[in-house]
Design a protein around this nucleic acid. Structure first.
Lengths: 225, 225
DNA sequence: TCTTTAAACGGACCTCGGTCCGGTTTATTG
DNA sequence: CAATAAACCGGACCGAGGTCCGTTTAAAGA
């Protein structure tokens, strides 16, 4: 009845709490076995090639496995699920972004005011998303995992930090979620592709939103957070 | 190569533009054939029963068909896909909500100020979502259709209308999407179930958010909307 | 170098959402 | 009350994501 050996030791995400101070790929580097590392690289390369050629929607997990000359089980062992593989495809870009807003030059990185950094953060995020919209869309985790994914958490924590500095008198966490919501790939897709808005309008919208929400003004309904 | 007869005349959603002034079930009443109507009722009843007994996650389309003593094809002909069936399950509640905020008593309906109505709208939406969270979560359409679903559009248009009255100097559409984002089932799930926040805090957050965003204050970055 | 063991491998297999299409039922019309 | 057309029905069928488990293999220790 019970499976004593969890023969699938769960690849990504180590736990749920450790959170902070770790980047997207949490403990993935813990030296893989040589063959595993080689196959991982092959899979990512094959996936990237197929996605570029046929569009992410027409790429099946089996096709990726075949193109990488690897068994199907290997793909899932390494990346967990389709979302995991697609997320890994975006990992390089995401890492760059993280490095930029954590330690890079102003106005994105430290050196500018929290408010300026927040403005810059949203614009950059919007651009990244819009540049690889299909991929970001397809990589979206299931609704119940969206907020637990490593990349999301890193961005979220950063927004929280900026908000704490810029707007201490607020329910930071809720405000941050609201702002993050504006940057969601699904929304960007809807506005740009289905409603035909230019990206510039989304950017203006972000600036406006930030100006409205982050502004010292004792909100009347503040709970004891 | 081509299928001259689209033997599946597409059940839900009539088009993409007609929008306004039609409720959730658009042109679904257009008298179904007697047997079709009977089967539809059976299916909804069976689905509701199974969902209540086993939880929405453990209910397959085939099981619903079997429980309703109907072929599998019939389910999909009637409801399009799983999302369609689940949405139909929520339809009654949603209709009530719509009636309430369109023509019901204040503060939700007309009679109160736009701002008050907006405050009430969010609280009611949060409660509804939280009351049947699992169902709302499972009924969530794919990311590319979320914003096109009939129930979403009705809510969205309403928020737009209220915003136009309360805050003419803003990019209404973007602001409305932001507010709607705060009410998303996925977010409610995360905050209440994964982060353990009480619903009251979400409500306070909504009030605060509305107070912040809808407030006459010439935002500096307004585009020519 | 040989043994050992935990990790990795691969592909058959399962489940479930969604589609197809030949046969059936309902409603309309002459 | 036939006849005709449109809508409906059902269940075999398909594709893709995800799992299982017997086999292989890289790496650490004797």
């Amino acid at each position: 009845m019970s499976t004593p050996l969890p023969q699938f030791p769960k690849p990504q995400e180590p736990a749920a709490e450790p959170v902070l101070m770790e980047f997207a790929t949490p403990a993935e580097a813990p030296q893989l076995r040589a063959d595993a590392a080689r196959n991982r690289a092959r899979l990512l390369e094959a996936a990237a090639r197929l996605v570029e050629r046929h569009g992410v929607a027409n790429v099946t997990m089996e096709a990726v496995a075949a193109a990488a000359e690897v068994g199907k089980g290997t793909v899932f062992r390494r990346f967990g699920d389709r979302t995991g593989l697609l997320t890994a495809l975006l990992d390089h870009t995401e890492q760059q972004f993280q490095t930029a807003f954590i330690g890079g030059p102003a106005p994105l990185g430290p050196g500018a005011s929290p408010l300026e950094r927040l403005h810059a953060f949203g614009c950059r995020a919007l651009r990244l998303t819009s540049d690889q919209l299909d991929l970001y869309l397809a990589a979206e985790p299931s609704p119940t995992r969206r907020f637990s994914s490593a990349p999301y958490r890193v961005r979220f924590m950063h927004v929280c930090m900026l908000l704490r500095q810029a707007e201490p008198a607020a329910d930071i966490e809720l405000l941050a979620q609201t702002l993050m919501g504006y940057l969601e790939p699904a929304l960007v897709h809807h506005l740009t592709r289905q409603r035909g808005m230019p990206l510039e309008r989304l950017e203006s919208g972000w600036h406006d939103l930030v100006d409205r929400t982050v502004r010292p003004s004792a909100g009347r309904h503040l709970p004891g957070a």
